[in-house]
Amino acid sequence: MAEALRRTWQATPDPKFVVAVGDCGRDGGLFCGSYAVVGGVGDVIPIDAVIPGCPPSPAALLTGLLEVIGRLSR
């Protein structure tokens, strides 16, 4: 999936935000350290925000997204 992710990121025109959602997106979550996992999304492409949780609670999702928008207005 790493290569597919990299290509998808490349194919998306700027401006763009990448948000890694969930523990799996953050660092591999339950499968962290497994030989089949490269790591989190952030290890493959640059990310703008991480929303932890398995699954992330609505409040966490909102916080994460607001964080991204906060960067936008900054």
Binding site: E3, L5, R7, A11
Partner: peptide
């Protein structure tokens, strides 16, 4: 502008 190959649903 950035040129990159056509997106094929992440297909290699």
């Amino acid at each position: 502008s950035r040129a990159y190959e056509t997106w094929g649903c992440g297909r290699i």
